[in-house]
Amino acid sequence: MSVFLAKRFITLLATLIGASIVIFTVMEILPGDPALVILGVDATESSVAALTKELGLDRPPLERYFDWIGGLLQGELGNSYAYKVPVSELVQGALQITVPLAILSMILSVTIALVIGLYAAANHNKASDVTLMGVSQLGISVPNFWLAVLLILYFAVNLKWFPPGGFPGWDQGFWKCINALILPAVALATVQGAILARITRSSVLEVFREDFVRTARAKGLSQRATLWLHVLRNAMIPVITVMGLQFANLLAGTVVVENVFYLPGLGSTVLKAINNRDTIVVENVVLMLAAMVVITNFVVDILYAVIDPRLKAHDI
């Protein structure tokens, strides 16, 4: 097990180093001078040059790259060019929204998926299965921002159960914040849950055809006991793979839904920073996202080994 973990950990570090190089290079190539964006198009050449020097952007790229990484290792992210505040402060505010939102969406998505997927698989080819799969097809087809608008119209404007948008901040109380995150979480979880439900169903059905399921039935286990005791764990590998991908997507790819609900999450922060050519913010946030994705994959890899003892054996 420890060899397995060590190998995975080295992969994790290598991926992060690679990602940091790619991110830095892309931001170097990206046209647009931060100093020029801050000062506006009317700025004189000398003031632009002075600001460039002040921001430290006149130094060679390699020096700035190692500066950045060195700072990261000491927990120092630098200051935003556009807002003159520490990047860590900007990111912290965004993380307080994005991470709880991602977790809430994931819980919803997995609940929807397991309930629908298992029920449909247990009732394979019956009316309930066909109906549920039809509904999930609908869930996949609906764009999440449109669903978000519908949810706001019905649950926030008509029923007034939830706020239509915005985020009160965690100092305003736990339930108030959760309340503000429920509608965006539902909007995000519907599509992902529908996809995951279909994967759960097909994976369970595939495992049901395995020989060991016949053995379990020959032991005298009922169809339902076989599903819970023998099929489920074997069927979880593809489900967990997709769950990992979906969680990464929830952390980084929710800009549109965040905007519909006026949530200043990580996606919105990075989008604003790109428009401002606030390269230091972009670099740090994107690297952080990459780190979260890589760590999610790391956790998924460990889960594989926990679920299937054969994987551990192959790696050692």
Partner: peptide, 17 residues
């Protein structure tokens, strides 16, 4: 319990997990 069975494929007839 009263009737038990041995299958043809020992390699796949046991639950791997």
């Amino acid at each position: 319990n009263k009737m038990a069975m041995i299958f043809q494929e020992p390699m796949t007839s046991l639950n791997p997990v």
